[in-house]
Amino acid sequence: MKQLSATDRSQLAGEYVLGTLRGPARVRFERLVEDDPHLWQEVAFWERRLGPLGEALPEQAPPSRVWAAIEAQIGPQRAPARQPTGFWQSMQFWRGFSLVATGLAAALLVLVLLPPADTDFRPIQVATLQNEADGTAWIVRVAADGTAEIAAIDAPTAPPGRDYELWLLRGTDQAPVSLGLASNAQTQRIALPATFADGTGFAISVEPAGGSRTGAPTGPVLFVGGLVGTRTN
């Protein structure tokens, strides 16, 4: 492909940025770009030059649950890996205080938007369990009394002979704790273990029917979400 002319390069890059290259052709082109700085320059040219089109539509504010979901998804990554609780005392936390407050407002909105199955249930924290391909599958809400509600939002069916298992995530140096099987059809209410004090989020893995026999996730971890919200104690 080294013999691409300047015109070919510009046209291919233009079609890529415009979006006419689809499927395998798009993937092939992305690989070509990585090895060809000239092609990369052409892509940058079109990104910059067509960019204003993307700004030209009348603005439309997204619902605040989108930001809450983004925070839930990337939240654990910005916390220091070894000391989950240290995050709350860190400089970054104070510098981003207004932002965290905005995130909290958004999280609270999620809490309000999703009426609990049990009206006595008063959530103070929420985690949106998702991945890039399937989006949001489960939402876990945690109440001040140490119970949690696991609601399937758009959860796929488990593969035949397999079950989904819910895990409590703690710091990267601490093992996840099993919270039992997760239903993709019903909203469940569970009591959280004492280890929840270190909890930073939740994950769902695919396990043999009945759950992991080792006490640790053995199948692929499909959905992950960080906790958003504050604990009262």
Partner: peptide
């Protein structure tokens, strides 16, 4: 290599 908005718009598209 270009303005930030153009880069972001490409990711969104």
């Amino acid at each position: 290599k270009g303005a930030g908005m153009g880069w972001i718009v490409t990711i969104a598209r």
